[in-house]
Design a protein around this nucleic acid. Sequence first.
DNA 1: GTGGTCTAGACCACC
DNA 2: GTGGTCTAGACCACA
Lengths: 127, 127, 127, 127
Amino acid sequence: MISINDKSDVPIYEQIKEGLRGLMARKILLPGDQVPPIRGLAETLVVNPNTIAKAYRELILEGFLESRKGEGAFVAARAGNKASNGMKSVRQRLIDSVQLSRRAGLSWKDIQAALEQAKEEEGGNGE
Amino acid sequence: MISINDKSDVPIYEQIKEGLRGLMARKILLPGDQVPPIRGLAETLVVNPNTIAKAYRELILEGFLESRKGEGAFVAARAGNKASNGMKSVRQRLIDSVQLSRRAGLSWKDIQAALEQAKEEEGGNGE
Amino acid sequence: MISINDKSDVPIYEQIKEGLRGLMARKILLPGDQVPPIRGLAETLVVNPNTIAKAYRELILEGFLESRKGEGAFVAARAGNKASNGMKSVRQRLIDSVQLSRRAGLSWKDIQAALEQAKEEEGGNGE
Amino acid sequence: MISINDKSDVPIYEQIKEGLRGLMARKILLPGDQVPPIRGLAETLVVNPNTIAKAYRELILEGFLESRKGEGAFVAARAGNKASNGMKSVRQRLIDSVQLSRRAGLSWKDIQAALEQAKEEEGGNGE
DNA sequence: GTGGTCTAGACCACC
DNA sequence: GTGGTCTAGACCACA
């Protein structure tokens, strides 16, 4: 459902937030759906439960999730639309990353090639 | 020679390291060449000399540079090859970044658009 | 745990690095063990936290330590073996130093006497 | 006549000074003897002539050498006796080095063994 | 002039 | 609380 790259310099809790937002934006997680319990997700992702808790807490503050005591956390009503907004930072980070690669000497051709490689590694299905 | 984006969340000293490694990989800086003096580079990049020193020191530890006290820092013998290898990791990081964006819900079209934006922000001259 | 001689011309951060590597090589610090927090160690050794941070950072780059943000720094998996190897270089440096003393005209007797003096200054407990 | 270890962290000019002082103390260089010309010694040791010049300059200031314009530098009258005094710093450095090794985890036995090894590498003739 | 070390103190991110 | 980055400025060693 969500995958983590713990070698990335992107904080784990951010990766989780973005993973969940992505699932919402792509309508895989729909309003009203329950998101995985903190403990369970922490176990499957092998991260500290506090880290999951932080991700959920922020998503709640940002209005993507709602928590119901004793039941768990659920996707909020208009989360799908909002999720597209939160995506700006993801985009900016990607741009930063490209610019860093440029400064490190990669040509645009190299970068395009890397992009193709990422596409292939994923399974090659365009979207 | 090297450019810095101090708004990026990539540490300045890392940007400097990668910039220099890029110049080595592209054979613009050749073994034996002197790299700019710490204080001078600090002045042109408008950063603290310690930050440059940190970058240089790590490049020395990694074998890309050699320093001769009182003389300056110089590109090490096999720095070019090592830098080319290091380039692979830069590339890998870019791929990681793209994959992370995908997981966060960006479409390939979004990613391509972000790439174009990065190109424009840079000045638009393809390579 | 670690002792510092700030009158030595060996940099403090180097003394700290070697002290820690020694503890690893002697299996007093085992893989997974947490090393003292930067600020705490800085306080007990009466040095600037940056100096400790520099030592830790280099040990991380060399693969002896791992750091987890917000948690602390920990002894890396195969640190013990690496440290034992590193010990060789310590030994070699000692040999270099002895040979330098010889070239400077010290007799073997002088050198032996110096060794005894070092032993006494330490507290005299053989090992 | 003199050998240099450019991997040592002892400055080259110090190694040269100590080498010369050692030759004086051991009566190999006698008062009135001419020491090698700066250029020649720089060439044989493969170091910067400035470095030799610095060593000579300091030895002159310390009274070990005398320079005669147009002729070269010569061992001063009572250099032999004085040389033994200069040896204190050499000794101290050796002690520092031993203490550093101790802090790095070497046992006294290790250190004694290293000493033996240095002796053997030299040729084994006690003095 | 060069690089190397150290201090003091700030601010940030993460847990 | 933890480590990470950066600044400002000092002092030293070397060429």
